[in-house]
Design a protein around this nucleic acid. Structure first.
Lengths: 338, 338
DNA sequence: CAACTACTGGCAACCGATTGCCGCCGTCGT
DNA sequence: ACGACGGCGGCAATCGGTTGCCAGTAGTTG
């Protein structure tokens, strides 16, 4: 009972090529894998035979004996989040440059799914980039012991990471609000487990202190549109004039809720987000945000990972820091309120 | 010179388990693969030994002899496009239900990249879902001959596909505009290679004819925000009162350009998009759009593909049609103009 | 009691590449 | 003339499972 498709004819193997070229299979293998090891004429004959048969090396067989699959995993918590679009793009970019394939594992915000897909994928990949994860530091360390790993926007002693320069970004945002005359800034916090959240709040406190602005923290809320809607309630009874949100989705959710109430942005409230995802540019008013170099984040993570796999880069403890940039749009301005 | 990571200790194999349990490796294999084939007591002993060693079957080795990798490919032209977020999610959902892994191949809108990543991925997967592709029908047919394939929103005789019910959706949109008093509808066309584009325009013509509305077609434009901006010029000299765009991105791009010019939406122009991607809900005014069941599209495609691989589903020629739904938001209304 | 069957477990041959080691051959040095 | 050596190709083991086939045992049947 063959499955319903057309004849899936078996690909030619190294043995077929060897027979046609009149050499041993091992010679065929070497002809492709180590140039120079085989006599130029022989190699030429082999290449012709291979071309004639349309031979392509079977990656599975190769992986079995070399245990190099040329695949890496990229683990994220939610493909649906626009934050990851550009990140994935960057990762793919860097991977395909070295002829690697990236296996996307989407945890769908569930730790069960995360564990399962990780287990399915781990034995197949040569390394893994943790874009985001619900797993504990210790669990991650266990995994890192088995396979090369890079972590994004999170700090784990002994495990290489790539992070964005939150302090600088926050600083710029605070300066911007300060220049607009705001004296109080409220931070809408994201998930407590988020390392970036801690960084942002701390940086905000410090910047506020230096620039003589009052800071306050509310939350945490979920890092989603809904989280932003939920944040509205946390801003009672006195709506602040300036709000910095954990990320763009939260900021957008909040803006929409406020706008629906008749609150004017930026006249009544200025709102700032983080990351600069695509929708930040599309909403009205456009969202002022601390932009992360999302694509670069993905590509340097993969680049570093491949370097480690290659043995070219030594597992450095120091996080690799990527610069941020304040993108000013229309969601921030002088307050019309007293 | 080992690479910089911790000791990547080799996983235990069936040979280790066999030794510990005092049986032959083949028995271990059978104990897991065919329940009942091995005596219950023996199987129990083997399971204990495996647990003790923390044995996990090596998927690469298994794939070599069975040529079943439990991986499928999902090919799309641009991960960055929000259209694919939900689609990917749906695909992952269906795949993980049957313990399959999906390999995302992002063509980055380049045929070279598309070919390369496809070649890298094809020998490894058991089947492929074409989410979008620049490849010609004949090229796709060649590939379909080698491996099970499902195509989305495109029709290829002899190759199973999953499509959205464009005619019905268009019909609803036209009725909606008709009810609002519009008498002329302009269609901003997408890429000529797009099968969906042809469907939409044809359905629009027909619906317009039946409902006694005038229809016109401009374009084509790229299926992106920029395409939408470009579309503005095509609407001169007389701005129509109602525009249906190839997809949401085009619609949003167009709306932004118009709004920047001071054109009021929907008072001066009503705009309708297709697909109902996330930003459609976020922009102001909210975009009225013919929603595709994106997640379902992804999951049924993968579901059908796996059924074909399993041999359970026969390669049907008939496209699998998924219903659309008109989502009315604020971008459509009665025209204030004469 | 012979014959037949069902149940189990082992042997060994794959799947398709990679690679250590050996041997053949021709060349060069002394 | 003989040994050393470099170039090149083949042999065979290996990666870790899967599976067809066979044999031994026990239970059943006539």
């Amino acid at each position: 009972m063959t499955s319903g498709d057309g004849t899936r004819k078996s690909q030619p193997t190294i043995y077929d090529v060897a027979r046609l070229a009149g050499v041993a299979p091992s010679t065929v293998s070497r002809a492709f894998a180590r140039p120079g090891r085989v006599n130029a004429d022989t190699a030429q004959r082999i290449r012709e035979a291979a071309a004639q048969l349309g031979y392509r090396a079977n990656p599975v067989a190769r992986a079995l004996s070399t245990s190099r699959t040329r695949m890496i995993a990229l683990m994220i918590s939610d493909v649906t989040n626009p934050y990851y679009s550009e990140l994935i793009r960057g990762a793919q970019l860097a991977a395909s440059q070295e002829e690697y394939t990236v296996l996307l594992t989407d945890a769908r915000e569930s730790d069960v799914v995360e564990r399962e897909s990780l287990e399915r994928v781990l034995p197949v990949v040569e390394g893994i980039v943790i874009g985001s994860s619900r797993m504990s530091d210790s669990t991650l360390r266990v995994i890192a012991k088995q396979t090369p790993m890079i972590v994004l926007n999170r700090h784990l002693a002994g495990i290489p990471s790539v992070v964005t320069d939150n302090p600088r970004g926050v600083r710029r945002a605070v300066e911007h609000l300060g220049e607009l005359g705001h004296e109080h800034i409220t931070y809408v916090a994201g998930p407590e487990a988020s390392w970036a959240d801690g960084m942002r709040w701390r940086a905000l406190r410090e910047a506020g202190h230096e620039l003589h602005l009052h800071t306050r923290r509310v939350g945490p809320v979920a890092p989603t549109l809904q989280g932003g809607r939920d944040a509205r309630a946390l801003l009672r009874p006195h709506l602040p004039t300036a709000v910095i949100c954990y990320n763009d989705l939260v900021a957008i959710g909040l803006m929409r809720t406020l706008t629906a109430e008749g609150v004017r942005i930026p006249d009544d409230v200025s709102v700032v987000g983080f990351d600069n995802i695509l929708p930040a540019e599309l909403v009205s008013p456009g969202l002022t945000t601390v932009a992360s170099p999302l694509r670069t984040l993905g590509s340097t993570a993969v680049g570093n990972l491949l370097a480690i796999i290659r043995g070219a880069l030594h597992t450095t403890d120091k996080p690799f820091v990527l610069p941020t940039r304040l993108v000013v749009r229309e969601s921030t301005g002088r307050t019309a309120r007293r």
